[in-house]
Protein backbone atom coordinates (compact mmCIF):
# COMPACT_ATOMS: atom_id res chain seq x y z
CA UNK A 1 0.00 0.00 0.00
CA UNK A 2 1.47 3.37 -0.90
CA UNK A 3 1.39 6.10 1.74
CA UNK A 4 -1.19 7.97 -0.33
CA UNK A 5 -3.82 5.39 0.46
CA UNK A 6 -3.21 5.12 4.18
CA UNK A 7 -5.81 6.74 6.39
CA UNK A 8 -4.99 7.49 10.02
CA UNK A 9 -7.07 8.55 13.00
CA UNK A 10 -5.07 10.41 15.66
CA UNK A 11 -7.10 10.17 18.85
CA UNK A 12 -6.86 11.65 22.34
CA UNK A 13 -8.54 9.31 24.84
CA UNK A 14 -8.76 10.38 28.46
CA UNK A 15 -9.01 13.85 29.93
CA UNK A 16 -5.52 15.30 29.50
CA UNK A 17 -5.18 18.38 27.35
CA UNK A 18 -1.66 17.82 26.09
CA UNK A 19 -2.00 17.46 22.34
CA UNK A 20 1.23 19.03 21.11
CA UNK A 21 2.56 15.56 20.24
CA UNK A 22 -0.71 14.44 18.66
CA UNK A 23 -0.83 17.53 16.44
CA UNK A 24 2.83 17.32 15.45
CA UNK A 25 2.41 13.66 14.50
CA UNK A 26 -0.81 14.39 12.61
CA UNK A 27 0.94 17.02 10.55
CA UNK A 28 4.02 14.87 10.01
CA UNK A 29 1.95 11.93 8.73
CA UNK A 30 0.04 14.28 6.43
CA UNK A 31 3.26 15.61 4.98
CA UNK A 32 4.34 12.01 4.44
CA UNK A 33 1.30 11.62 2.20
CA UNK A 34 -1.19 9.96 4.52
CA UNK A 35 -4.74 11.10 5.11
CA UNK A 36 -5.12 12.11 8.75
CA UNK A 37 -8.12 12.84 10.94
CA UNK A 38 -7.59 14.27 14.44
CA UNK A 39 -10.37 13.71 17.01
CA UNK A 40 -9.57 16.56 19.40
CA UNK A 41 -9.37 16.27 23.19
CA UNK A 42 -11.28 14.18 25.73
CA UNK A 43 -12.58 11.40 23.53
CA UNK A 44 -14.26 8.39 25.10
CA UNK A 45 -13.35 4.91 23.80
CA UNK A 46 -16.82 4.78 22.22
CA UNK A 47 -16.29 8.05 20.34
CA UNK A 48 -12.88 6.95 19.10
CA UNK A 49 -14.10 3.63 17.74
CA UNK A 50 -17.11 5.29 16.18
CA UNK A 51 -14.86 7.79 14.41
CA UNK A 52 -12.52 5.01 13.25
CA UNK A 53 -15.41 3.05 11.77
CA UNK A 54 -17.07 6.07 10.18
CA UNK A 55 -13.85 7.32 8.66
CA UNK A 56 -12.86 3.79 7.67
CA UNK A 57 -9.29 4.24 8.80
CA UNK A 58 -6.37 1.83 8.47
CA UNK A 59 -4.48 3.10 11.49
CA UNK A 60 -5.36 4.55 14.89
CA UNK A 61 -2.73 6.49 16.81
CA UNK A 62 -3.68 6.89 20.47
CA UNK A 63 -2.01 9.72 22.35
CA UNK A 64 -2.36 9.82 26.12
CA UNK A 65 -0.43 11.49 28.92
CA UNK A 66 -2.86 11.13 31.80
CA UNK A 67 -1.97 7.62 32.91
CA UNK A 68 -5.43 6.22 32.15
CA UNK A 69 -4.19 4.02 29.28
CA UNK A 70 -4.51 0.86 31.40
CA UNK A 71 -8.25 1.49 31.81
CA UNK A 72 -9.12 3.00 28.46
CA UNK A 73 -7.05 1.09 25.89
CA UNK A 74 -8.62 -2.32 26.61
CA UNK A 75 -12.07 -0.78 26.17
CA UNK A 76 -11.02 0.70 22.82
CA UNK A 77 -9.66 -2.66 21.65
CA UNK A 78 -12.82 -4.50 22.74
CA UNK A 79 -15.08 -2.02 20.98
CA UNK A 80 -12.99 -2.28 17.81
CA UNK A 81 -13.45 -6.05 17.84
CA UNK A 82 -17.17 -5.64 18.47
CA UNK A 83 -17.38 -3.38 15.43
CA UNK A 84 -15.56 -5.97 13.34
CA UNK A 85 -12.57 -3.69 12.89
CA UNK A 86 -9.80 -5.49 14.74
CA UNK A 87 -7.84 -5.33 11.48
CA UNK A 88 -7.00 -1.70 12.22
CA UNK A 89 -3.36 -1.08 13.13
CA UNK A 90 -3.37 0.51 16.59
CA UNK A 91 -0.34 2.47 17.83
CA UNK A 92 0.15 4.48 20.98
CA UNK A 93 2.33 7.27 22.32
CA UNK A 94 2.56 9.71 25.21
CA UNK A 95 3.57 9.09 28.79
CA UNK A 96 3.29 5.32 29.05
CA UNK A 97 5.66 3.65 31.50
CA UNK A 98 7.87 0.83 30.13
CA UNK A 99 6.34 -1.61 32.57
CA UNK A 100 2.97 -1.26 30.87
CA UNK A 101 4.16 -1.82 27.29
CA UNK A 102 3.88 -5.59 27.26
CA UNK A 103 0.37 -5.57 28.72
CA UNK A 104 -0.75 -3.18 25.99
CA UNK A 105 0.92 -5.22 23.26
CA UNK A 106 -0.85 -8.30 24.60
CA UNK A 107 -4.24 -6.71 23.95
CA UNK A 108 -3.28 -5.87 20.38
CA UNK A 109 -1.59 -2.47 20.44
CA UNK A 110 1.14 -3.05 17.88
CA UNK A 111 3.69 -0.51 19.07
CA UNK A 112 4.15 2.09 21.81
CA UNK A 113 6.31 5.05 20.80
CA UNK A 114 8.11 6.84 23.58
CA UNK A 115 8.64 10.61 23.80
CA UNK A 116 11.51 11.58 21.50
CA UNK A 117 10.51 9.20 18.69
CA UNK A 118 11.00 10.82 15.29
CA UNK A 119 8.12 11.24 12.87
CA UNK A 120 10.28 9.46 10.29
CA UNK A 121 10.41 6.34 12.43
CA UNK A 122 6.63 6.29 12.86
CA UNK A 123 6.04 6.82 9.14
CA UNK A 124 8.39 3.93 8.31
CA UNK A 125 6.72 1.70 10.86
CA UNK A 126 3.24 2.38 9.47
CA UNK A 127 4.33 1.84 5.87
CA UNK A 128 6.03 -1.42 6.73
CA UNK A 129 3.01 -2.72 8.63
CA UNK A 130 0.68 -1.72 5.80
CA UNK A 131 2.84 -3.53 3.27
CA UNK A 132 2.52 -6.79 5.13
Amino acid sequence: MSADNIKVLIAKPGLDGHDRGAKVIARGLKEAGMEVVYTGLRQTPEQIVKAAVQEDVDVIGLSILSGAHGELFPVIMDKLTESGRNDVLVLAGGTIPDDDHQKLKDIGIREIFKPGTSIGKIVDFIRQEMDE
Partner: peptide, 10 residues
Protein backbone atom coordinates in the same frame (compact mmCIF):
# COMPACT_ATOMS: atom_id res chain seq x y z
CA UNK B 1 -18.43 8.20 33.77
CA UNK B 2 -15.72 10.36 32.20
CA UNK B 3 -13.57 10.03 35.31
CA UNK B 4 -12.91 6.37 34.62
CA UNK B 5 -9.23 5.57 34.81
CA UNK B 6 -8.35 9.17 35.68
CA UNK B 7 -9.03 9.40 39.40
CA UNK B 8 -5.90 10.36 41.30
CA UNK B 9 -3.65 9.86 38.26
CA UNK B 10 -2.00 13.19 37.52
Amino acid sequence: DLARGEVGRV
